[in-house]
Write a protein that binds this DNA or RNA. Sequence first.
DNA 1: ACAACACATGAACATTCATTCATATGAGTT
DNA 2: AACTCATATGAATGAATGTTCATGTGTTGT
Lengths: 124, 124
Amino acid sequence: MIQKNEIERCNCTVIHQDVVDNVRARMPSDENLYDLADLFKVFGDTTRIQILSGLVESEMCVCDIAVLLNMTQSAISHQLKVLKDARLVKGRKEGKIVYYSLDDHHVNNIFKEGFTHINEDKHN
Amino acid sequence: MIQKNEIERCNCTVIHQDVVDNVRARMPSDENLYDLADLFKVFGDTTRIQILSGLVESEMCVCDIAVLLNMTQSAISHQLKVLKDARLVKGRKEGKIVYYSLDDHHVNNIFKEGFTHINEDKHN
DNA sequence: ACAACACATGAACATTCATTCATATGAGTT
DNA sequence: AACTCATATGAATGAATGTTCATGTGTTGT
């Protein structure tokens, strides 16, 4: 009889069961990690990073952003929706024009940490 | 005659040229933003987030991680390569076994910022 | 030398997702 | 009311990417 624990997924024997148990107990919940990955997924696209990076400097309307990045208004609008759903940007309507700005003061901090890591890489 | 600036990409007239110019001057270089997006792309996957989150607690070998996450050794190995290429984890070989650990003390900070944002969302 | 094991890796497949295209909405203008 | 302009959005297309499967590499033990 084989152990019934991971019959299908893992093809290797457990080496350090105690470590695994300990880590599992200390890790954040799956749901939290899921949400975290979803958040970083939003940051993990060049267009969206550029948009966020631009909005750090000033609020802008959709057309401004499209011109800034030399991209279609439609493409920008789609990405703004993603950023809005992730609560990273917000829109302020003024007549026909919608002015977008950062909805989160953490964006800067997250950027900063990211840049720190990248720059540290350059030492090698 | 039409303006020659953005003939193809953007279908809307520039609204705030001054703002756009100003923002463009202050924004980080495209290359830096590219690298930043690439970094966050690595964080933007559930499996990799789980791996990193586990390695925050303790170094582990590939099989340990596979058991921890109930996934194939192959899948874990592939993702470890991605994490290694991004200089987020490093491997220490001891006989047949390779022990992986975090290669970057910023990982914790980035996690923290991410969680802060997620938790702040819950207020709505 | 041979077998067993931990890990790495290339190709194939499936899914996710960013952009494009066409069109809709909604506000201002005449 | 008709028209223009800024923005939003649904469907389709194409590219990027995560997992699986099969196999390769390197180390340990007999």
